[in-house]
Design a protein around this nucleic acid. Sequence first.
RNA 1: UGGGGCGUGGUGUAAUUGGUAACACAGCAGUUUCUGGUACUGUCAUUGGGGGUUCAAGUCCUCCCGCCCCAACCA
Length: 568
Amino acid sequence: MGETSNLPTAANFVHDVVVEHNATGAFGGRVQTRFPPEPNGYLHIGHAKAITADFELAREFNGVCRLRFDDTNPDTEDASFVAGIVEDLAWLGYPLDHDPLFTSDYFAQLAEWAELLISNGLAYVDDQDGDTISEQRGGYGKPGVESPFRNRTVDENLALFAGMRAGDFDEGARVLRARIDMQHENMQLRDPVMYRIRKEPHHRTGDGWSVYPTYDWAHGQSDAIEGVTHSLCSLEFDSHRALYDWFLDRLSEFAALPFEQPRQYEFARLELTHTITSKRKLATLVADGVVDGWDDPRLPTLRGLRRRGYPAAAIREFCHFVGVSKTNSRHEIELLESFIRTRLNKVAQRRMAVLEPLRVVITNWPTDADGDPIVEYVELNNNPENTEDGTRTAPFSGVLYIEHDDFKAEPPPKYYRLTPGREVRLRGAYFVTATDFVSDDDGNVVEVHVTYDPETKGGNSLDGRKVKSTMHWVSAAHAVEAEVALYERLFAAEVPGSETGDPFDDLNSDSKTLLHGCKLEPALAETAAEEVVQFERLGYFAADQRTPLLFHRTVGLRDEWANIQKRK
RNA sequence: UGGGGCGUGGUGUAAUUGGUAACACAGCAGUUUCUGGUACUGUCAUUGGGGGUUCAAGUCCUCCCGCCCCAACCA
């Protein structure tokens, strides 16, 4: 987490609010936030922004931020998500220093407070069904209609709510509603539902409850119980703030709240181009097998990004840079990728790997007494950005693999690489000149013949002669075979669904390419699981967490040659 | 249709709170380079629109326009 604090100050209006509060003595200088996911899915990049906003705000003011599971809906929640979220949070850089909190731990307190509101005529049991209640709510600019059950006596309400709690009624038969104002211009205040009946067992409380608090009734009260001061949430809860305050205001009239009343602040959620952050839609992609699970490297889930090789620190830096504001916006995925590259450029070890191999024979390479090509070992830098990472050695011999794209029988304009008659450098080894090539029946080049200049050992010419390009290579006799997964954007459109309204219409059917028979330099066989290395000239690649010799392309290098080709 | 939020370059975020538009990404043009990588240089907006106040407005006033959110017993 330390790195983040070294970044320049980014936009954060909540930060400014806290500064203001501290200046005026609000909350006694205390800052407490919370990250409140519902355990009904895995965390994604959008959550990363909320997480950094919550945790970093607390950290900056020496406050505390705690994880609280907002588990008020037994229909959708699952214990496996609880564990997954805790794990992802730790990976992101926020390991828990406390047992996670659960809204379900406050169910008893919440119910007690609900009875307090009932006793003061501020809540009532409604026997109508959802459709009726919804109709009576009215509409924007249209008045609401009061429920015929709105004026039940306190005793009747108390008895009925007790019955709801006892499980006397079926799901949907009754709800507890706040008694506010059916004509309120803010629809949220038109007698919102506080409790509904659910018979589904809860992942923690089991069959202990048959009524469950709604988000609105649970959230502010949970914040108050914990002593949260600044309760951050996304923009769409803006209209809920009045309700958040109403509950707390009323409650504080009848009960002593343990802390000063928390306040809610809304900020814009993080949206990125070429991807989606809807939990429901991500779940659909997983369920339909469009991707290979929640940790598919194409997904914006934290576990997907992790598997893909995105460094947690880079994600944090990105979130910090993006800041906290109220403007609805969508960041270009390229910005995130630039943070990934910047970080990886500093730390990733350089290696040579040939993804689409083309056989190269050095026709003048010397042989030993048995007639076999001799083998030399060349020394290579592990990381030009950090000489302390030292060097390694790679075997070089008379038969090699180079990238198929690195040879063209007929070079296009501005092509610097190998082509008949041209001399190039094989990184760290020798200058070679293409003399000939072999094609198959379809005209595809299958082998290139070159001659090498023994005077250029190590990759430099004695006469100062320059070469246009330096290419990576792998010795055929020593190559380690591997699989490499290449990823493109999961969604072709910048804004998935912008045309048809359905994001899935913009799914890119070619988002994954699995390459077999890739040739790696021997040092790559020792790559640790999850380590990200740079395949020189190609990009950053992450070793799979479970399968050895499987690499995922994290992100490509910036590629000017690709831009040149695109322009044509 | 009522209420609320928001509009600065291709994208996102700034602007000492009225003082002459900054940073990053992307793009383009170059320099350096044993990665067409990195690094470095240059270039790329007059702030949704109109009117007003002022020596001075992205910042204040006013009218208009546009986008987003709210009528789940989801969160």
